[in-house]
Nucleic acid binder design. Structure first.
Lengths: 216, 216
DNA sequence: CAAAAGCGAGAGCACTGCTCTCTAAATCCG
DNA sequence: CGGATTTAGAGAGCAGTGCTCTCGCTTTTG
């Protein structure tokens, strides 16, 4: 870790910072290596010393965004499981609305030809974990299909003692939250439930019932 | 409607057909006006006589894709509301999996700077309608917030006599389906629920319960 | 201290969306 | 019918993109 390595880290951070600014304004599709280079005062080819390809930069941004979201979620605490779920859901939505492009970078359409590289998997798991933890207090009906519960076996790596059916139900409800937020961000609710606050709130209440978190 | 106009329609159709092929292979982001022009045997500038901008072409593709999806959904019939919901859900998922780029064109990340033009709204409504119709047979708890039911008032234009709370619940469940399918297509379920068949099936069963469609 | 490795600059390739001008054909209208 | 107008398509060109390659220069390494 000589001076050289520190300089490299600083430059890498500067590039990602510029990339995050570009991302916030243009979205993932409009993220341009040359524009980033301009912003950090380098020529475009120099950026490729740090990220060999645009995809590599995007992958780094994805991991970073997962981290930001996970951080926000971990800051959401509440006394009862029901309240915790509510807070998690609203934290997710608020985060998405304040950083729409970051949310869409994570949960939106994959870049054409892009396949999620392995390093994004633990980052994604960090986002799911706080939701899954509530599964410890859930009592769900259904979600007991044999092969489904087999698939959920690995979830105990994230949350020990988590029931498979609870894990599956939480996963499904997390998908529902992400779906609702995605539709809202994309403007699909404009003709019907806009602003989406009330629909979202009702959805969360329904989820608390479905997950059996109401009894406290 | 002279010969000239017919020729124009044919060329327009040829362009959209080529665009659909490109879309299926490259996705919306990789859709190139020049590649389309090459495929129909024109020079790129000629394409701009038919679609003044790439966005205009994309809008046309979006409307067309909504139409395809709505058509598929309208072909799904079943005797009981519960079975109809199941069939609609699976039709949605199957359609998305067979045409991932078309699904993502509709429900995925909007193109940077793109805002859905008004002509897409009725097309989107045509997709929601078959789901909303099942709301006539639903009995839902919750979703009775005053302002939410006020927002749902316009839904009776699509489905007469539809209860606002049912409309809201259906909308939320449609968002859940879209969210689950989006996550599946994006590969977000690979580490957990892959293949997603069982999770999806369990989700649909849960929805039937939530919507009160089970009693028949 | 010489050799190797790393960094940044610059030029260049093939591609993109889009505009502009030009030619030729079809249509309109007096 | 025939001149005027509209229209389709071609071609060149502009500004931008991701990415590669080569060339100096500096820093690190053996």
């Amino acid at each position: 870790m000589g001076i050289r390595d520190e300089a490299r880290e600083r430059t890498t951070a500067a590039i990602m910072e510029a990339a995050r600014r570009e991302l916030a304004e243009e979205g993932a599709g409009g993220l341009s290596m040359r524009a980033i280079a301009r912003e950090v005062g380098m020529v475009s080819s120099a950026v490729y010393r740090y990220f060999p390809t645009r995809e590599a930069l995007l992958t780094a941004m994805i991991v970073e965004s997962y981290g930001h979201l996970a951080e926000a979620l971990n800051g959401a605490s509440a006394r009862t499981p029901a309240r915790r779920w509510t807070r998690l859901a609203h934290t997710l939505r608020d985060w998405a609305r304040s950083r729409p492009h970051e949310f869409q970078l994570i949960y939106g359409t994959p870049i054409p030809g892009y396949v999620a590289p392995p390093e994004t998997i633990p980052a994604a798991a960090a986002v799911a974990t706080p939701f899954l933890q509530i599964g410890l207090y859930a009592s769900v009906e259904g979600f007991r299909n044999r092969r489904l519960t087999a698939q959920m076996a690995g979830m105990t790596d994230l949350v020990p003692d988590l029931e498979p059916s609870a894990a599956a139900a939480i996963l499904a409800e997390l998908a529902a939250l992400i779906g609702a937020v995605s539709l809202e961000l994309a403007g699909h609710l404009v003709g019907s439930a806009d602003p989406a606050d009330y629909l979202f709130e009702a959805l969360v209440q329904r989820q608390i019932g479905t997950l059996g978190l109401g009894g406290s």
